[in-house]
Write a protein that binds this DNA or RNA. Structure first.
Lengths: 126, 126
DNA sequence: CTAAAAAGGATAATAATTATTGATTTCCTG
DNA sequence: CAGGAAATCAATAATTATTATCCTTTTTAG
């Protein structure tokens, strides 16, 4: 049995995601880590993102301009996507964000596990 | 100035979208219309979907398994996506679905234009 | 330390979407 | 109804994000 969860590179990918609020794409992560890990491969980033997503350590928050964007902050919150520059920012509600999955009854659903709420508009910098 | 908005094929694409509740992909639309329009091209479907989306006649409701899915029902409602089979079904709230864009203040946003709320889970048929 | 398992690098393959180009259709104007 | 400009289209090539492959390297349990 393996006791250490993550390989070095997986750890680096995860920690980078934890440390940023840019909701990056695979490519952004790759470019950010490349200096410190010169032999990093883009495929490794993709593979580990999928793997971490499977673990529930990370989630895909949006697809912007055809690119999947990730977040390691797993507390319930939503996102605002700028339609012009693609920047993604966190949206917190003044009260605790409700668990909408408990507030809906969906005929066609056997089990509602989660939801994703995304706001779109233009950011202050655009 | 052109008075008739749509070409035949564009009209057909739009009307198909209006008549179905499957939230189809470009390919599904293409396959559905092909019998009646044997010279229809897949590129035409993609082009017109983007065009209709620009018009606000249609919207992209989700990306499922890497495929953009569209809806012509423009009244405010949300969607449930089955994580297994990819089926998308409408979600209406008992009260009128609130306009959340008026309920949030987002620092980074100059203008919040719309939002998209998607529930995920397993459908009754899976 | 060693062997087995997991992970990675490099690269090829996939697949959805977009762009191109030359032909066809649409529809305003006369 | 005809001419012509603009819009649209079909066919196909190009693009691009992502995934799969395959062989090597790293990691880890014992």
């Amino acid at each position: 049995m393996r006791t250490q969860n993550y390989s070095r590179k997986r750890q680096a990918i995860y920690e980078l995601l934890l440390s940023t609020d840019t909701h990056p794409s695979a490519e952004w992560i790759y470019n950010s880590l490349k200096p410190q890990y010169p032999d990093l491969s883009l495929g490794t980033v993709y593979r580990n993102l999928k793997l971490l997503e499977g673990n529930g350590a990370v989630r895909s928050v949006a697809v912007v301009d055809g690119c999947e964007r990730y977040d390691a902050k797993m507390t319930r919150h939503s996102h605002f996507v700028c339609k012009k520059c693609g920047k993604i920012t966190d949206v917190f509600f003044t009260e605790t964000m409700p668990d909408l999955t408990e507030k809906v009854y969906i005929d066609a659903a056997k089990d509602v596990e989660e939801y994703n709420l995304i706001f779109y508009g233009i950011c202050t910098e655009c």
